[in-house]
Simulated assay, not measured.
Amino acid sequence: MTTRRSFLGGATATGVAATLGGPPAGASAGGEDGIAPAPRRSRAHDAIVAVNRGMRAHYAALKSDLITRLSPVIVVQNDAKGGRFTLLHDGTRESLHPVGEVFELAKSVSHVPLGVYSIIAPHLSDKVPNLPGAERIDAHDLEMVAFRGAGSTGWVAPLQEYAATLTAARRQLEEAGIPPEMVVSCRQVLDGALGFIDVAVAAGSFDIKSFEDFSVRVYEGIRTNMKYAAEAQIAGVEGLLRRWRSRIGEEAWQDLYTVVLSQWATSVLNQNSIIIKPCMNPAKVATHLIDLPAAEPPSDPVFVALDNLARIVQDNIAAELVFPSDRAAADALKGPQDLLADEILDRLGAERADGAAHPASFGSGEACPFSRRGIPARG
């Protein structure tokens, strides 16, 4: 019969054996239960990890049920037309693009310099030129982008094809039904790009300086287009929000959740979030307006939005119940901060206070580049 004393004795003997490189005298390699130490450890690992698997299964079940109950919710998928808006309320669903087409046309022409850049960028010199603002160009970033080098002519054909696209658009400006001032600004941008392309193709070369000169010439036209795009978006989104607010009623609107899906590059001060924010309940907007960046537009944006929203909503309640004595930990569970962030920052800070080396440090004794600013104090 195995007693607590004999078990502890066996464990101690096993530890000694591991230190000396072999089993203790009179003991079998398999241990008292006949199972070798490695399989026992694996079995223990699996049993403990099963606890987390069980949690995740129940967490997923709760989330799945909650997804079907979330209401009212507006999901916004940012796109070239100003955003596709979906309202979910009490089992009903409506999706549409509320922004007028002036937005899409203004943005389309304003993206011309970026289109030209995308073709020529791999063929630029990887040396930072002596230009105003050159210090803002990261030399390594430039080296990564300009991977083909200035000697290649692979840019000529695609640039000429893009010029044909620009020429076709320019011919149709008068027929597009856009404001006269925007016709002028679009023409300015298109003509500037076509001029840059003509010169580059004729010379068989270009450089960062010539592209910068082109960008400066067309910037005024881009600013005009941005004005019309902004006006169209504000009018379209605010008009839709007023209509939906009237439909679902003030009581429901006060609890509105809004999830705006965007790419990382536009996830801070996102155009639709800016317009929506003042239309929501100010007491809840901080927790009910969620900007959700993604690498690429999801195939089912509404499901992705609801899946993330369900996590947020159930974590809001879990945080106060799971961590009732630690407000900082509760806030971490309720927000985008990782629960271990506080502890990691504490440990990294302690290492530096002790003068311990750290593999990510730049130079000896340099302080960690991350601070705990903005993280609530414990207790």
Score class of each variant (00 low, 15 high):
residue 140 H to Q: 07
residue 169 A to H: 08
residue 139 A to S: 10
residue 141 D to V: 06
residue 147 F to I: 07
residue 123 H to P: 07
residue 150 A to K: 14
residue 155 W to I: 00
residue 125 S to E: 05
residue 110 S to L: 04
residue 140 H to R: 10
residue 115 G to P: 05
residue 109 V to F: 07
residue 130 N to S: 11
residue 166 L to R: 01
residue 164 A to D: 15
residue 121 A to D: 03
residue 174 E to I: 15
residue 174 E to D: 15
residue 114 L to Q: 12
residue 168 A to Q: 09
residue 142 L to P: 06
residue 135 E to T: 13
residue 135 E to Q: 05
residue 108 S to F: 06
residue 127 K to C: 08
residue 158 P to V: 08
residue 134 A to V: 03
residue 153 T to P: 14
residue 167 T to Y: 03
residue 141 D to T: 10
residue 151 G to F: 00
residue 110 S to G: 01
residue 132 P to V: 07
residue 163 A to M: 12
residue 147 F to N: 11
residue 115 G to N: 11
residue 145 V to Q: 02
residue 125 S to K: 13
residue 162 Y to W: 15
residue 143 E to T: 09
residue 146 A to V: 11
residue 122 P to A: 05
residue 172 Q to W: 09
residue 129 P to N: 04
residue 174 E to C: 06
residue 111 H to Y: 05
residue 114 L to H: 11
residue 171 R to P: 02
residue 143 E to W: 05
residue 171 R to F: 10
residue 133 G to Y: 13
residue 142 L to Y: 07
residue 161 E to I: 15
residue 162 Y to N: 06
residue 123 H to K: 04
residue 150 A to P: 15
residue 175 E to T: 14
residue 146 A to L: 00
residue 148 R to H: 12
residue 160 Q to R: 15
residue 160 Q to D: 10
residue 145 V to P: 01
residue 155 W to D: 00
residue 116 V to W: 07
residue 131 L to C: 00
residue 167 T to F: 09
residue 142 L to S: 05
residue 130 N to W: 04
residue 173 L to M: 10
